[in-house]
């Protein structure tokens, strides 16, 4: 990687004389960009932790260990633990069909997979209320069988799945398209069956893309607010996820506690960014397989 970066930058350096801005233009542009980013990204990030610790470590510790916070944490983890694996299987199935086969309507299917990204989270919650709510299609039937989905955990899980459907599929589809079908064809000619081909050839080849999509999917699953807010019912200790818990504390003016819980989510975001950056490097490596030409 370093050698690649070095060659790139040395190439740039040679061109610097005639095709680059003068130093002062450069530094003004850098300054402007960094000021903008500082105001909009860096200051908020620092502020979360500052506000969280404003009233000291004791308040912080108490806020994140009180029973309601722990319950919210459990629910957030549960929702992610169901939504992420389901979307993982979906992503692999969708990418297998789309990337390895030629069929009609493929582009429409790709657009449909992306659909949840363009739907407002609030609408995403609303549609489940319309289907499963008391007034909804299945409401009377569910009530008769004493099954509660809306204002209960299943609704939260469903809303979480909805908003995270595209994450893994959209990472895998272009990756698997770029890798082509020859390795799989070779495996089949050599006698491998479908599962052997998937396990031994395809999955090892896409493992970094898979991980990348999973990281993003997980971050969104744990952080989703709007969609979950609509279907949750905000019952403390029972149907509150961490982001919803933050909202409740905030609306009760327990600012320090709200920011303490928020800081946990901010840490999750930072871990996500770090993991994402690491995996991006692996992906970049895989995308440009080093061609070592030591032909005699």
């Amino acid at each position: 990687m370093t050698t690649l970066a070095q060659t790139l930058s040395s190439g740039r350096l040679q061109s610097a004389r005639i095709a680059e801005e003068s130093a002062w233009v450069r530094w003004i542009l850098i300054g402007l960009a960094l000021t903008f980013l500082a105001l909009f990204l860096f200051v908020p990030l620092v502020a979360v932790f500052h506000e969280a610790l404003k009233k000291g470590w004791d308040v912080y510790y108490a806020a994140i260990t009180e029973p309601d916070a722990l319950a919210a944490m459990r629910l957030t983890l549960t929702a992610a633990a169901i939504a992420v694996p389901l979307n993982l299987i979906f992503g692999i199935a969708a990418a297998w069909a789309i990337a390895k086969f030629e069929f009609r309507g493929k582009n429409i299917l790709i657009t449909l997979i992306d659909l949840p990204f363009s739907v407002s989270p609030v609408v995403a919650g609303l549609i489940y209320v319309l289907v499963f709510g008391l007034q909804g299609w299945l409401g009377p039937w569910l009530a008769a069988h004493d099954i509660q989905i809306i204002f209960a955990v299943p609704g939260i899980v469903l809303a979480t799945i909805f908003v995270t459907v595209p994450f893994i599929a959209r990472e895998l589809i272009p990756l698997m398209q770029a890798q082509g079908t020859e390795e799989e064809e070779a495996a089949v000619i050599l006698g491998a069956n479908g599962w052997q081909t998937l396990w031994r050839v395809t999955l090892p080849n896409i493992k970094w893309g898979l991980l990348y999509g999973t990281i993003l999917c997980n971050a969104r699953a744990m952080g989703e607010f709007g969609a979950v807010s609509v279907v949750s019912g905000h019952i403390r200790g029972s149907t509150n996820t961490l982001p919803l818990h933050v909202e409740i504390l905030y609306n009760e003016y327990s600012f320090a506690a709200a920011f303490a819980v928020a800081s946990l989510l901010a840490m999750l975001a930072l871990i996500t960014l770090a993991a994402k950056t690491l995996v991006e490097h692996r992906l970049a490596k895989q995308h440009q397989p080093r061609e070592i030409n030591h032909e005699h």
Binding site: K100, V123, L130, G136, W137, F162, V188, I189, G194, L198
Partner: peptide, 28 residues
């Protein structure tokens, strides 16, 4: 194509999308 699993993969994809996304969206 000689690769297997198309019907299974596409079938699951369409079922999942329909149940999670398309049918609920049509409710609106």
């Amino acid at each position: 194509s000689v690769l297997p699993g198309f019907s299974l993969a596409l079938g699951f994809t369409l079922l999942y999308l329909s149940l999670i996304v398309l049918i609920p969206l049509s409710a609106t």
